[in-house]
Design a protein around this nucleic acid. Structure first.
Lengths: 208, 208
DNA sequence: AGCCGTAGCCATACACCGTATGGCTACCGT
DNA sequence: ACGGTAGCCATACGGTGTATGGCTACGGCT
């Protein structure tokens, strides 16, 4: 285990992942090249291959580390509407923290093959609490997850509205959550919606 | 205007676009290279640049031609629920016809800057008919469009359900449309939903 | 008829990419 | 003392997009 030649310390996988993630966040996935990454680490390009199998394996890895940083809120006592909204916001926070990589993940089939980490352990119980019957549960979860995914992708890519102010984005996200809550309520517990309800709190005038 | 050297006829932009679109459809956007395209056209790579400004301009162009092939249904008399469902299916048909390019478009900000073609001319009136107030119209349209976009992206990438049979996809898409219809109805014309309504037609048992 | 502008095509070259191959150095355990 | 090996690196190969400049053959002009 020789000490690093030109650097003080030997290369570590964590260092590689962190730097790669930084490069991706700064210039998108297409701005990540093994040569640039090596330059950023002050190392010969081929040295990377002693710690990483290939570029795609590297990208897989940094996608995983990103996924692990999803901070799932724990709100055990709260009604399902609030829990679902909080989960949506947590998901959105992850997406806006790593925009480029996030879009990348969700357009590459080979990644995220299994349902991502603890997300689904929280998501499904919420839907159960919303009254979604068991035989529609997974399908509904997939649909809602895809909805939010699509909204976030579109927001990041500016495929949306001429007004792209952060406030407009916030409003749009709330509108989306409201639509989902109303849809779930109407479908699975129509009685529960007493004129307004959790979906209608704090929604501004929205001139747009 | 000399006749083509090795080919009978000179190269035409339409020929280039069509072949490029074919290559993309067969192997994804990353399988499109100017050299391969030239080979498929039996031409020197540099000849392409007499008809196309750059590779990105070429991709822009084939994205546009794809967008033009969206077949928007005209159903003037029908209720808004049916029109919205038909529009969703038309959109889905486009996505499944050009899966690779379609995902590409929706993850690249620079494309589709303006709202795509006649889609919005049909979409917005439907939402008006659904009772969406004018000051929420564009935002709601953006959200719903993003929802469907996300669902289609996820379906194509198999980020969804362990069962990926076409039937499961169909059911999931119907579930999504139902959710949207219920959400819109609950939000904007709650009286209109008389126990079931348009959203509940022909939805199978769905064991999943 | 003579000529030239130019449309279309092509050969070459450059910088960049991912990575296979093999050699160097400096430490470790024995 | 010495072999094994972990870490690093130089070189090379085949791929990419495209800048540059030269070739051919036609249309329109004088």
């Amino acid at each position: 285990m020789a000490a690093g030649a030109r650097r003080g310390s030997p290369l570590t996988p964590e260092e590689i992942y962190a730097t790669a993630l930084r490069l991706v966040n700064e210039g998108g996935v297409e701005a990540l090249s093994m040569r640039k990454l090596a330059a950023a680490l002050d190392v010969n390009p081929m040295s990377l291959y002693h710690h990483v199998e290939s570029k795609t394996a590297l990208i897989d890895q940094i996608c995983l580390t990103m996924a692990e940083r999803l901070e799932i809120p724990v709100m055990d006592g709260a009604p399902w509407q609030e829990r679902l909204r909080a989960l949506g916001h947590a998901y959105r926070r992850l997406a806006t923290t790593y925009p480029a990589l996030w879009s990348y993940v969700h357009t590459h089939p080979e990644l995220v093959a299994a349902r991502e980490g603890g997300l689904w352990d929280v998501f499904l119980p919420i839907l159960r609490a919303a009254g979604v019957p068991e035989d529609e549960l997974l399908r509904t979860a997939d649909v809602l997850h895809a909805f939010v995914t699509g909204l976030l992708i579109n927001q990041q890519n500016g495929h949306i509205g001429s007004d792209r102010s952060p406030e407009a984005m916030d409003r749009m996200f709330e509108t989306a959550i409201d639509l989902i809550l109303d849809g779930l309520t109407a479908r699975h517990s129509p009685a529960g919606r007493a004129g307004g309800g959790a979906a209608d709190e704090a929604r501004p005038a929205a001139p747009r």
